[in-house]
């Protein structure tokens, strides 16, 4: 079977009058259908740049991005991108925010509305459809942002530190919630995070990047035996600290 996502030899530099910043260099990896990848690396190593490239917001200097075996531009797939902050628009209701992507792509109709309605209900936002974002807690806002992303039925989900704006407790439960939702819908996802335990608690594989320019330093496969162990439970298992130390060592050794 072809991998969902295949990245080979990706490089990218930013240009400004002060000079050139090589952000990513020679990045190659694959993601299978339904796989959950986590990417960790020091601050400024190019993680967000990687997602912008995958999403098509930036054009790579070198390298290819294949989705289902064809270049991204030809494959016509939908890619969902979730940013660090929820960016719900205060001038729209929760339903209005969830519909934003459909509205932009002119796919809004009564059946899509019905589906969103059900989706908001499933994710515990049923009674907040007509509320303003400011009336929601941080965790609920993040879930609303997830609904907005999922509304376009993306084949590939990109998550750029989506929980880092939350306080620690909310963060644990929202991360648990959201990764369970994503796994239950069998989406392929790439999560960027600063938090090693977060990465290990959700991912099937953890990709470790070097400091800028970002290169792949190690890929650590994570396995807790069964597929269906929730992130919060993973944290209590003995393998957890073994993986933690392994990833931690990879991040620490500079060579």
């Amino acid at each position: 079977m072809k991998p969902k996502l295949e990245v080979s030899g990706l490089s990218y530099s930013y240009h400004s009058l002060e000079g050139e910043t090589l952000a990513l260099s020679n990045i190659s990896f694959t993601a299978d259908n339904g796989e959950f990848l986590a990417v960790v690396g020091p601050s400024g190593c190019g993680k967000s740049t990687l997602l912008s490239l995958l999403c098509g917001l930036l054009i790579p200097d070198e390298g290819d991005i294949l989705i289902d075996g064809v270049p991204k531009s030809e494959s016509g797939v939908n890619i969902g991108y979730m940013l660090q902050r929820d960016h719900l628009f205060e001038w729209r209701t929760i339903m209005g925010n969830a519909e934003l992507g459909l509205e932009i792509q002119k796919k809004r109709n009564s059946s899509s509305r019905e589906k969103l309605h059900n989706m908001l209900h499933t994710y515990g936002l049923g009674s907040f459809e007509n509320a303003r974002p400011s009336e929601l807690s941080g965790g609920m806002r993040q879930r609303a942002a997830l609904v907005r992303t999922l509304a376009l039925e993306p084949d590939l989900l990109l998550l750029d530190e989506p929980f880092s704006a939350l306080d620690y407790q909310t963060r644990l439960s929202v991360c648990d919630d959201i990764s369970t939702i994503i796994k239950s819908t069998h989406k392929t996802a790439i999560l960027i995070t600063h938090d090693l335990s977060e990465a290990i608690s959700v991912a099937d594989r953890v990709i470790v990047l070097t400091k800028r320019p970002g290169r792949i330093k190690a890929v650590v496969p994570i396995s807790f035996g069964s597929e269906n162990i929730r992130p919060l439970d993973r944290r209590n298992m003995p393998e957890f600290s073994v993986y933690f130390n392994q990833v931690w060592k990879e991040l620490q050794n500079h060579d």
Binding site: N78, Y81, L83, F89, W91, G101, I104, L152
Partner: peptide, 28 residues
């Protein structure tokens, strides 16, 4: 906020969408 603009582009929008969905309502 550049991230709000990035959001519109990531949802498949263009400059017109940025204007109508972010800039206008956000500047009221």
């Amino acid at each position: 906020d550049p991230d709000k603009i990035k959001l519109i582009y990531s949802l498949g929008g263009n400059k017109k969408d940025v204007l109508l969905k972010v800039l206008l309502p956000g500047s009221v």
